[in-house]
Design a protein around this nucleic acid. Structure first.
Length: 336
DNA sequence: TATGTATGGTAAC
DNA sequence: TTACCCTACATAT
């Protein structure tokens, strides 16, 4: 279920709990037995997220590349060090499913504070909690699951990474391979800019240039990981609406200022997504409207998954169509 | 309880 | 172009 924000969150969790420690690797399912044997016993030396890809380095010479695809997920268990920059969700892992009020707190504090950096760490120093969490779209948790150690394997686990305190189980990934440093760089080189990896201004130039030279619908270009990294089907639909941009306009015909606005919107939405764990695309609502929208589970998007429902702005029925075998939602009037 | 769909991308065909 | 990954969730029965 992950778009780019989820992958960055997972990378941060590995950063805090695995990097700098020796790791035992295994493949309970068996389909990554060979790779797990190669990794096992090595120290994780770095972790990096680029778009929807995550790379974990072992002993400064081997890279594990993981892509979760449509329904892959990492499950963390045991000791979880809470990253203060994503603490709005993690800080309350003892609860299962929070939205509204927690988000509001997060947005009011960690995200929108103009001072930025300082406020992000003000939530508190890292602390140890005993939890079991699932990192996919959202971070939810079951508190104090003090059971067996290591935890029993449940279902199909492609890869289990274990330190003496923390367990991470990978299920259902599209990709789970070991790469040489060279291969890793080649993979990254094929990816479009990621606002959290590349300098945003450099990224903006690359994005503008790539879009301007293509005669392909902007709706397709936003999903193309070679053009820009990390955008998926939800962010695509929402960002096109926020830009009031027709998805079918060829990239080269989209006004440059609109392309620039889309990039800058992605910079913002990705940052919010990483910090809150939510795909918050209605952040510009008034506080009152926002609270009302968040109260209902199906009211979190402008157009995504709203086929046939009235546009929140003009009342026109939202349409859905297939674009590149994915569902595309948009307002034919606002995005005319 | 059963069925259908999906916040993707890869690799086989 | 299609199968696959083999999960989570919503909806139908």
């Amino acid at each position: 279920m992950p778009e780019g924000h989820s992958v960055h969150r997972i990378a941060r969790q590995f950063e805090r709990n695995f990097v700098g420690r020796p790791v035992t690797a295994s493949s309970p399912q068996g389909r990554f037995a060979e790779g797990a044997a190669v990794l096992s016993g090595r120290e994780m030396t770095a972790v990096r997220a680029v778009g929807k890809q995550m790379f974990a380095e072992f002993d400064e010479q081997l890279w594990l590349r993981v892509h979760l695809g449509l329904y892959g997920a990492w499950d963390f268990a045991g000791e979880i060090l809470v990253d203060p920059t994503i603490a709005s969700a993690n800080g309350r892992m003892g609860q299962t499913n929070q939205r509204g009020t927690d988000l509001e707190e997060a947005l009011g504090g960690a995200v929108f504070d103009a001072a930025g950096e300082n406020s992000l760490t003000s939530i508190g120093a890292p602390r140890k909690t005993r939890v079991h969490v699932r990192m996919s779209e959202q971070t939810t948790g079951l508190a104090d699951e003090d059971g067996e150690w290591p935890p029993p394997v449940v279902g199909q686990v492609r890869l289990r990474l274990l330190t003496d305190a923390t367990c991470a189980d990978l299920r259902g990934p599209t990709a789970c391979v070991i790469q040489t440093p060279d291969e890793m760089l080649q993979t990254v080189a094929k990816l479009g800019p990621d606002p959290l990896v590349d300098d945003p201004e450099v990224g903006e130039r690359r994005f503008l240039a790539a879009v301007a030279r293509r005669n392909v619908a902007i709706g397709q270009l936003l999903m193309d990981q070679a053009i820009v990294s990390g955008i998926g089907n939800v962010y695509r639909a929402e960002m096109l609406f926020r830009a009031r941009q027709n998805p079918h306009t060829p990239g080269r015909d989209v006004r440059p200022e609109v392309v620039r606005a889309i990039w800058r919107d992605w910079v913002r939405l990705l940052r919010i997504g990483v910090e809150t764990g939510q795909m918050m695309t209605m952040d510009d609502l008034s506080p009152e409207d926002w609270r009302r929208a968040m109260a209902s589970r199906d009211d979190r998007h402008w157009v995504y998954h709203r086929a046939g429902l009235p546009c929140r702005v003009c009342g026109t029925a939202i349409v859905v169509e297939e674009m590149q075998a994915r569902k595309l939602y948009w307002c034919p009037r606002c995005q005319a």
